[in-house]
């Protein structure tokens, strides 16, 4: 059997909000080390990869590896009912046909039980090599969300360029052009809620990406105050948000290239 209890149920709520518009159905792959999920959007342009390590749960039991296939939109509707301080317990039988989600309020005064039908999803798992990226930008997640939203007014493509001076986001369209430049900056008083912008640069990078997908990724903003954007020329970019201290959610996006 599989059973896992997450004391911070709102993490699961934020994860579902982050992926439900990008991916419709996905497998939660459960093993003794934790839960992982990998899925592409329907156009195969982007990929989401989630990791929740077993040690981040206060109870985790997985007798044998199982894949629990779920419709993420249905799951997000159920998980929206999680109170912010509720704990969430996920359970599944050995074949993953039926999944139970149980929400408990902090004082134990309210318990709700939900059951979702598991789906048989035949998904291709891609092998993502571990890569040393040429440029790694860490910045406030809310700032990244705002830049994606603001530049979408002008065009559908953003050119992200890193140099030792900083990082620029530029877009152009029929209306005109827009460019936002960020310089490296220190965090304000080491306040985790006001992180600065930092750039680890091996080599400068300049690549084009579809703003539509980057905007989907920024639905993960409530998960963390910072986001990390890793890029090398000619390969997909990675946008990573930590999931508490138990894992991460990574979004990979294929670049736009000159025809």
């Amino acid at each position: 059997m599989f059973e896992a209890r997450l004391p911070q149920g709102d993490l699961l709520k934020k994860i579902l909000e982050a992926v439900k518009d990008l991916v419709t159905d996905a497998n939660f792959d459960c093993s003794s080390t934790g839960i992982s999920l990998q899925a592409m959007d329907s156009s195969h342009v982007s990929l989401v990869s989630l990791l929740m390590r077993a040690d981040g749960f206060d109870h985790f039991r997985c007798d044998r590896n199982i894949s629990i296939g779920l419709n993420l939109l249905a799951m997000s509707k159920v998980v929206r009912c999680v109170g912010n301080n509720d704990a969430v317990t996920m359970k599944a039988d050995d074949n993953g046909d039926l999944v139970t989600l149980m929400f408990e309020s902090q004082d134990g005064s309210k318990v709700s039980d939900w059951q979702l039908r598991g789906l048989d999803i035949d998904s291709e798992r891609l092998g993502i090599p571990s890569t040393d990226y040429s440029s790694v930008v860490t910045m406030p997640s809310a700032e990244f969300a705002r830049i994606c939203r603001d530049l979408s007014v002008i065009g559908d493509t953003v050119v992200i360029t890193t140099t030792k001076e900083g990082v620029t986001f530029a877009s152009k369209g029929e209306l005109g052009t827009g460019k936002i430049a960020l310089r490296q900056s220190a965090a304000i008083d080491d306040d985790a809620d006001s992180p600065g912008v930092s750039i680890e640069l091996q080599e400068p990078v300049s690549q084009s990406f579809a703003l539509r997908y980057l905007s989907f990724f920024t639905k993960a903003t409530p998960l963390a105050p910072t986001v990390t954007i890793s890029m090398s020329n000619g390969v997909p970019l990675v946008v990573e948000y930590p999931v508490g201290d138990m894992g991460h959610i990574r979004f990979y996006l294929a670049p736009k290239v000159e025809d």
Binding site: M40, S43, H44, L126, T157, K256, E258
Partner: peptide
Amino acid sequence: AKVQTKIDAFYLGA
């Protein structure tokens, strides 16, 4: 013109 590449063209199936 720029064209959108596909993510599975970069990463082979595991």
